[in-house]
């Protein structure tokens, strides 16, 4: 990770959409036991699209910035397309190269979201 990755540091210091959505359609927690990073997401849906996401949690700059960025960039996206997101896509969304060793950090948030979505979309 680059200490001067402005976007990451900005989201880490000023996380967007922090908290829990009232009347959430879905919520899910994801923990990385090796470092104690912990993310809980709550989601509101509009048909098969994502309407809102909020998150709570604590952890490293990568994990927290990644989920903060996702709570903005996934709005309006279809459940199907979000379920397809992989490491490469997360890297693109974050706008900086993420090293192998930070893979789990970067993915923790999207894993929480995808796990939540899978509970209602087994057949998607």
């Amino acid at each position: 990770m680059d200490i001067y990755a402005q976007n990451i540091m900005d989201h880490y210091k000023n996380p967007r959409n922090k908290g829990h959505l009232k009347n959430a359609d879905l919520s899910q927690q994801e923990i990385n036991t090796t470092c104690g990073d912990d993310i809980s997401v709550s989601l509101k849906l509009n048909g098969d699209k994502i309407k809102a996401i909020k998150f709570d949690g604590q952890g490293c700059a990568i994990s927290q910035a990644a989920i903060s960025i996702l709570t903005e960039s996934l709005i309006g996206k279809s459940i199907k397309s979000v379920l397809k997101l992989e490491f490469q896509d997360i890297e693109d969304i974050m706008g900086i190269p993420i090293s192998e060793r930070r893979y789990k950090c970067a993915m923790l948030g999207i894993w929480a979201i995808q796990k939540a979505l899978r509970t209602i979309s087994k057949n998607i």
């Binding site: 990770m1 680059d2 490293c60 700059a61 060793r101 950090c105």
Partner: peptide, 9 residues
């Protein structure tokens, strides 16, 4: 500062 960020940087 999370230890992972510190060790990485």
């Amino acid at each position: 500062i999370h230890p992972h960020d510190a060790a990485d940087i």
